[in-house]
Design a protein around this nucleic acid. Sequence first.
DNA 1: ACGGTAGGCGAACGATCGTTCGTGAGTCAA
DNA 2: TTGACTCACGAACGATCGTTCGCCTACCGT
Lengths: 184, 184
Amino acid sequence: MRETVSIHRIVAEARELFRDRGYEGASMRDLADRVGLRPQSLYTRFASKESLVRAVLAMTLDDALADLPDPATDWRGAWRTLIGRIAKTFETRERCVGLHLAYGVTARTPDAQDAVRAFFVRLRDAMAGILDAGKVSEPASVAADTLAQLEGATLWITTEGNMAPLRHAVERALRVADPEGKPA
Amino acid sequence: MRETVSIHRIVAEARELFRDRGYEGASMRDLADRVGLRPQSLYTRFASKESLVRAVLAMTLDDALADLPDPATDWRGAWRTLIGRIAKTFETRERCVGLHLAYGVTARTPDAQDAVRAFFVRLRDAMAGILDAGKVSEPASVAADTLAQLEGATLWITTEGNMAPLRHAVERALRVADPEGKPA
DNA sequence: ACGGTAGGCGAACGATCGTTCGTGAGTCAA
DNA sequence: TTGACTCACGAACGATCGTTCGCCTACCGT
C-alpha cells in the first residue's frame, strides 16, 4: 500500500492556515509543508488556492451541523449544542476561519467570496431553523445577531486572550432558548 | 512652494487599504499609487510597512475620540456620539480596520500586533470611562461587550451588505445608557 | 503480463513583495 | 553664495508568491 495524503487532511490543515494567517497570508508552500508534500502536489487534488476556501468552509459547516439533536423534538438541545460547538472552536482556536476569510477574500477571488457568503448564510439559516422550531419570533434576525455577537467576541480573544466577552455572548445566546434562565 | 504629500494623506490612504485588503493584502506599491508617489518614497516618512499600522490606528483612535462631550457633565451624550461614530464608520466603509488588522497581523510583526492591542484597549478604556462617569456597573466589561457586538455586526455587512445586525447592536449599545428607552 | 491512472516531485515560470542604494532637485538658514 | 536638509525617483536587490510542465513510480483492473 502506497502512503497517500488524504484530502480531508489537506483541508483540515488549510483551515488552520486560513484561520491563523488569512487568505493572503496562507501560502501553498506552508500548506504543503504541513501535510508533508511539495507544493505542486496539492494541485493534483485542488485546482487552485481559491478552491480550497470552498472546501474548508464546507468541512467547517459539516462539523458544526453534524449529528445535532433534531430541532423538531428537541430544539433547545440543538441550539445549545450548536452554540456550544461554535464557542468551543473559538475558545480553542482563538479565532474564526469564516470571519478571517470574510474579511480576507476580495472581488479578485469571486468564487472564494461566494463560498464565504454561502457559508454564513447556511449557518445562519440552520440556526434560524432551530429557533423557528421553537417558535422564537424573528428567527432569521435573532440568528444573525447571535452569530455576530459570537464572532465579535473573538476580537478580544485574539488581541488580549480575554474570553469574557465570548462567555457573555454565549450566555446571551443561550438565553434566547431559555428566557427565564437567569435574569441577572 | 514645492508640492508635497502630507503624512496625514498617506496614513489615511493606508487605512483604506488595510481595511479593504488587510495587512498582507495591502502593498506599498498600491499605497504609493494612491498618494501619487513611487513606493520607495514612502520610506522617507515611514521606516517600514509595519510602522504604518501604528500610525493608522493612532489616527483612527483620534478621529473616534476627538471633541467628545465631556463625560463628567454629559456622559450619555458622549456615549451616544462615540457609538454613533463607530457605527457610521462601519456603515459607510463596510468593515473595521482594527478588526481586519487584529486578525491580519501575526507574531512576525510584533510592533504591529502591539499597536492593534493598544488600539482596542484604549478604545475600550475610553468607552469604559464614559460608562463609569454614568455609574454604569462593570463599565470595562460592558464596554468590551458593546465593542465586540458592533465589530461582529460587520460580518454581515461584508458578506451580505446586511445592515440590520449593526443597527440592532447600536440599539443594544444605546440602551446601556438609556435602559428605560424602549423595552421592545 | 500489461496499460491506464493517480499521486508525487524536480525544475522552473513570470509576477509581485518589502526594501535599499545612489542621485538629484528644490528649499532654507547663515 | 553656500551648505545642510528634505523629498522624490530610477534601478535593482533577494525573497516569496501561485502555478505549470515533464517525468517517474506505484498501484489496479483486466
